[in-house]
Design a protein around this nucleic acid. Sequence first.
DNA 1: GATGAATGAGGATTCATTCAT
DNA 2: AATGAATGAATCCTCATTCAT
Lengths: 216, 216, 216, 216
Amino acid sequence: MQSPPTPASDTRERILDVAEELFADRGFNGASMRDIAGRCGLGQASLYNHFEGKQGLYEAVLDRGVTPLLELMQSLPNRDQPGQVDAMIASIMNHLASRPRLPRLIQHEAMTGGDYLIRIARSWIHPLVEGGVIDLKRDVGRPWQEDELPLVMLAWLYMMFGHFTMAPLMREVLDHDPLSPEGLARQTRFFQKLARLITAGGDGTPASTGDPHEDQ
Amino acid sequence: MQSPPTPASDTRERILDVAEELFADRGFNGASMRDIAGRCGLGQASLYNHFEGKQGLYEAVLDRGVTPLLELMQSLPNRDQPGQVDAMIASIMNHLASRPRLPRLIQHEAMTGGDYLIRIARSWIHPLVEGGVIDLKRDVGRPWQEDELPLVMLAWLYMMFGHFTMAPLMREVLDHDPLSPEGLARQTRFFQKLARLITAGGDGTPASTGDPHEDQ
Amino acid sequence: MQSPPTPASDTRERILDVAEELFADRGFNGASMRDIAGRCGLGQASLYNHFEGKQGLYEAVLDRGVTPLLELMQSLPNRDQPGQVDAMIASIMNHLASRPRLPRLIQHEAMTGGDYLIRIARSWIHPLVEGGVIDLKRDVGRPWQEDELPLVMLAWLYMMFGHFTMAPLMREVLDHDPLSPEGLARQTRFFQKLARLITAGGDGTPASTGDPHEDQ
Amino acid sequence: MQSPPTPASDTRERILDVAEELFADRGFNGASMRDIAGRCGLGQASLYNHFEGKQGLYEAVLDRGVTPLLELMQSLPNRDQPGQVDAMIASIMNHLASRPRLPRLIQHEAMTGGDYLIRIARSWIHPLVEGGVIDLKRDVGRPWQEDELPLVMLAWLYMMFGHFTMAPLMREVLDHDPLSPEGLARQTRFFQKLARLITAGGDGTPASTGDPHEDQ
DNA sequence: GATGAATGAGGATTCATTCAT
DNA sequence: AATGAATGAATCCTCATTCAT
């Protein structure tokens, strides 16, 4: 297709892109190696020059998506300024906006009890949820008791992921696209307002750096 | 409902049970007619005596699960008592607790942009979200403006569904089962407390009938 | 193909026949399920209604061939009459003549160190060779010491098998077919004469029931 | 033979070694170019710098093995001394012992009716068996009539080959390795003793140069 | 209503081979 | 001489479905 025969590991990235899309849209079982290869302009057999097999490709896709997300979430609590929560929310939303299929990938895997997530989630969800990673006690803690904080964190996770995982349905059902720039900005603002309520007597005044695109 | 439980529809129900489990666990493409038949103690061919085919069986499973959920949600706003929100939350949680695979079924379908959900969601999500079905304006409305109410509703939907759809993963990762009676009761109490915060300056006092099992 | 749709497990036997032929001719890896199905007048998928897979079919073919051979060899020493050895040789040769592909099957398996043979050979070769099954001590023993008897037995095994396994080559190279009735009769007579030499001072006089076709 | 062992033909020889092993272990169809290349520490494509293709490599392996065997067998009858048979047996056994996979290669090919062997066997087996190559009439002939001599020769071929082709199985089943130095020496002694019986009323006294390692 | 058997289509993967580098 | 990448064909096997019994 291209005049210069694709500069080496470019193909690998192209495969990952296509696979990410199909795995997110149809799940592991619904995406076929034939379709993935076809959309890459490759023969099926060529995929095996770059990945060990379907499972290997799948895990490579997950790795490429999950690793940056993990790094982002681990880097978050370092921001110890006022407006921390607003910035965190914007940061996460922007990250997911730039990889809008990632939540679907993770959700697929989570629902099937896939081994991959279980393997890495122990080092991800557990600290996140148990309060070790994000020290919300000062900001969030007032209305919540210590043992409720994991539920707060999961609720945030579910809300944010839900916005992305349900987007294909909502796009059809509502009169706007949740993943359009406007939809994302609106949702980010909503989450920031919500955060003020959840973390106690907020009043709805935006704190500081909540611009939905500052972080990408 | 029937006085003598016909063996005929008994088989049908057994198939639906098994299919619901497998479709929820593995999605439409990951569940095979062979596995479904096998777990029913039937030959593959027998499934076709009860359903039109895989798609038909799938939609029957969805129908059986979605219809009562819709009815429940449409019946909710009729409860116009104080403590309405607590009771609504308990009611929904109890319903889902009795059909814990239903959120996974719906989520699978929502993520793949399946036609089925789109078809029925127009009559479900739309009113729910647009404020026609649940008149939250009085209870919920104070901190929220009219056009934010859909986002509030969806946030609730995502949080509640998330608790069930993520359960297979969290069961492995956390140190408790989110779908155990204790896990569900805890989560229900959490949601009720959260509702008080979201719907304005609640103080955490349980309003009235929040028992997680009253409705089942 | 047939007007009456093949009486049940007739198909299974037909598959075994075809598979035996192809496995013997080409080995496990050289025989394809497609070819087997094709020669049966079946689609590939149909084979899996009767056998677990290629390996299962292969082992069924081996079982069907090896079991009667084992039974024959275990029944041999019961013949405790004069002319025992001649009759034994004729008996084995006739058995193999009726299943001329069996030695090739076994030889293929033996050369690849296949698990199947190793599994069953422990109960077959070992006693045969260690003198437990066939008590040749009286007949054969004179020129041979006790610890040489296993080698005698194996030599017989190799000679007899060789006649059948090398037949496809020899048929092309020699001017007669080793597996034709005449070829088999001639070979049987040769083996009987040879036996008299090996078991000591025979003179070549045929002892008794050496007719190559009496046993089949 | 070459003074500086060219790295070029070194690679070629290494490929031949590996291919011989895999072809012998698994047959032509069971050995893959990938495995051969892998065990050589080469990429698949590199094999094609040295051989025309799989078939070419296969025939090169056969050639390298069969040619010396043919030469050995043609050189045998020149030894016209007493004890000729003992020496011949030791010579053949020693040759095969130094290339223990050769009989398996030949047997694979013989059983599948491969063209290669048929092509060369006409000039090999035929004379061998028809008495042209090895003039056994004087030594062997006494108890055997002229037209039985081919069968005698083939019996020897089958016994000797069998010892090597069945070794992978027997190694697992018996309590010793037929191809170990002791196993080979024992088998050679056995064959020599057997020869004395077959060629008429021998008494077991070793004639002359039967040392199993003199020839290698 | 239940099912064994059959099947065309499609599943993932491996095959031997080629070619530009 | 070596190879990474590509590939069409073929591998074994599973899929959902049908149909006669």
